[in-house]
Design a protein around this nucleic acid. Structure first.
Length: 606
RNA sequence: GGGGUUGUAGCUCAGUUGGUUAGAGCAUCCGCCUGUCACGUGGAAGGUCACGGGUUCGAGUCCCGCCAACCCCGCCA
């Protein structure tokens, strides 16, 4: 029997083990050389325990221990001993005992770590942490993240298993469906010039599993999208992918509320209170300027479209006529937002959100409005403005008047940035469902309709006839097409603290409706057949009504663990340019490999 | 593709108006210390100031370029 079989986890050793001879293994976390006595804090996945090497007990062993350095991997055989009262360390779970070493085996010598692993020595730059990820993952916060991630996914599996779901795997090597995000492509060696695509999500397969009679499917699915990265976006990420048959929207939403509550309880130990509220897309945009609003704080937008006529300000009047005019009232902002801040904010919204400027009004202590534009605001307009925005002395009001999308983007961004700056965002969790998204969007480039979600999303039942009727017509005028922008989709997004963590819909299960949608999206029969003919074919062979959802595991964990990016909840994430600083991926490959794949690079040699 | 921030010892950072030999803490190496627990303590070693140009008598510092990491816009059905 090897000594390993006798091993105890460091954190498991306690007073009950007094006088017992035990084996512990792990990494040298800290060592304290007192001359005649040497202490080693030994770390394994479970935690820390103090090992003592005493010159008086064994001089040879003490000398051997003297050579130990941080991160050396050792095996210690020793006897557990209760510490003296004054030597107890209350900060350590194992602080009441220590292990008097009788044998020491150096299992693996370690070079000095290029990054600090001791929580008290701070954190290296992320660049170095990614290069030495195998060391970074030894640190407590990262170990914790991996553990919680495991608990979360286990919670999901337990819940869905209890609800009768089957976990089914779908292909990673897929057919490319150039729709939505950019595909990662994989060249086919056996089929010259042809490519697989990595799945952006298992969307079509999970629908076909419903056609296949699986009824309740889920998968912890890896998804791939070749788009630019953000702190909450990686080229590969993990989704809880779910699809159910014979359900309506409310059933899907209700199940997922319980799922998220259950998995969060398992992972974070928190009870999520009550049912998340539901908000229409329309309300989310009008009140927050955003389809994924952070509702942990108020500061909602004020409608000023009809108010513009009370002013003598051409900029406002013009905006209200051709676009929208809305305002954001920032409580206490008059003193906290300086002229310099306003200048910076103005430059920011012009640069990033295409705003033409940023008008503002401060409410003085006496209630009088102070601004460069007050001269355009008659008494009555000023009073009405204060009334509508609910502004109090000391507040500042920002205006955005422009094309609707610019107004929403500008004020939404301002709201979030100022709330953060002024410390208005409470440290809580608030979730909501956003529903009644439009089914179509307008593509200004091609002057045609686009899917907001994906083309398999069903309209709400009340609006389905509009789509079917429009689909029957040979051609539609621009007006007829734009009328369809009012059609609502039977979709739902789950939003937590201003982050979209899940989204789904009831799908189209009738091929007639599906074909109408394709016609409206100007996807020809041939094109539809070549791109997703296998789904359309499936829908013709008895497809049950079905719907589902997908949750971003990384994003939920980022929020639950209060991390600044999803990189901190993934074991081996990529940089913003999609590279792996540890492995060096992506990399050049041999000419021979390319030839086998019928590929030739057009990249210019560096 | 665009805007911004950062880059100085192994690590985290300081470095004034452009001016002598670029500093500190931690880590490393050599010592001292028998009850520490982020031990303490004496000493030593450690620098392509990301990289390439330029301005200047003189550049870590100013200018131009470039690379990388990060944040944002575009993009992400």
């Amino acid at each position: 029997m090897s000594s390993f079989s006798l091993r105890r986890e460091c954190n498991s050793v306690g007073p009950a083990d007094n006088e017992k001879s035990i084996v512990v293994c792990g990494w040298v976390y800290r060592y304290r050389d007192q001359g005649g006595v040497l202490f080693v804090d030994l770390r394994d996945r479970s935690g820390l325990v103090q090992v003592v090497f005493d010159l008086a007990v064994d001089a040879e062993l003490h000398k051997k221990a003297n050579a130990l350095r941080g991160e050396d991997v050792i095996l210690v055989t020793g006897k557990v001993r209760l510490r003296d009262k004054n030597a107890i360390n209350p900060k350590l779970k194992t602080g009441e005992i220590e292990i008097v070493a009788h044998e020491l085996e150096l299992l693996s010598k370690a070079k000095p770590s290029p990054i600090p692993l001791d929580e008290h020595d701070g954190e290296a730059s992320e660049e170095l942490r990614l290069e030495y990820r195998f060391l970074d993952l030894r640190r407590k916060p990262m170990q914790e993240a991996l553990r919680v991630r495991h608990e979360f996914i286990r919670g999901v599996r337990n819940f869905l298993d209890n609800e009768g779901f089957w976990e089914v795997e779908t292909p990673i090597l897929n057919k490319s469906t150039p729709e939505g995000a950019r595909d990662f492509l994989v060249p086919s060696r056996l089929n010259a010039g042809e490519f697989y695509a990595l799945p952006q999500s298992p969307q079509i397969f999970k629908q076909l599993l419903m056609v296949a009679g699986s009824e309740k499917y889920y998968q912890i699915a890896r998804c791939f999208r070749d788009e630019d990265l953000r702190k909450d976006r990686q080229p590969e990420f993990t989704q809880i992918d779910i699809e159910m048959s014979f359900v309506d929207k409310d059933m899907v939403m209700a199940l997922n509320e319980r799922l998220i509550a259950s998995a969060c309880k398992a992972a974070f130990g928190v009870e999520i209170d009550g049912k998340p509220q539901r908000m229409t897309y329309h309300d989310a945009m009008e009140l927050y300027g955003n389809d994924k609003p952070d509702i942990r704080f108020g500061m909602t937008l004020t409608e000023l479209g009809d108010w513009a006529a009370m002013t003598e300000f051409k900029v406002f009047k013009g905006a209200a006529e051709t676009g929208r005019l809305k305002a954001l009232c920032v409580p206490g902002g008059a003193a906290k937002v300086s002229r310099k801040d306003i200048d910076d904010l103005t430059q920011w919204v012009m640069q990033d959100y295409k705003a033409k400027g940023l008008a503002w009004v401060k409410v003085g202590e006496g209630g009088a409005l102070e601004s460069l534009i007050t001269k355009f605001l008659p008494e009555a307009a000023q009073a009405e403005l204060v009334k509508r925005t609910g502004a109090k002395p000391g507040d500042i009001i920002f205006f955005a008047g422009d094309r609707a999308d610019i107004v929403f983007a500008t004020l939404s961004a301002l709201r979030l940035r100022l709330a953060e700056k002024l410390g208005m965002i409470p440290d809580t969790y608030k979730a909501l469902w956003v529903v009644d998204f439009p089914l179509f969007d307008w593509d200004h480039e091609t002057n045609s309709l686009l899917s907001v979600h994906h083309p398999f999303t069903a309209p709400v039942p009340e609006d389905a006839h509009l789509v079917k009727e429009a689909g029957k017509k040979e051609s539609l005028t621009a007006e007829e097409q734009k009328a369809l922008l009012a059609v609502r989709s039977n979709a739902y997004d789950f939003v937590l603290n201003g982050v979209e963590i899940g989204g789904g819909s009831i799908r189209i299960h009738e091929s007639e409706l599906q074909q109408a949608i394709f016609r409206l999206l100007k996807i020809s029969d041939e094109e539809a057949q070549s791109r997703f003919g296998f789904l359309l074919k499936g829908l013709e062979f008895g497809a049950p009504p079905h719907g589902g959802i997908a949750f971003g595991v990384d994003r939920v964990l980022m929020l639950g663990l209060k991390k600044a990016s999803i990189r901190d909840v993934m074991a081996f994430p990529k940089t913003q340019k999609g590279t792996c600083l540890m492995s060096g991926a992506p990399s050049l490959v041999d000419e021979k490999q390319l030839r086998e794949l019928y590929l030739k690079s057009t990249a210019k040699a560096r």
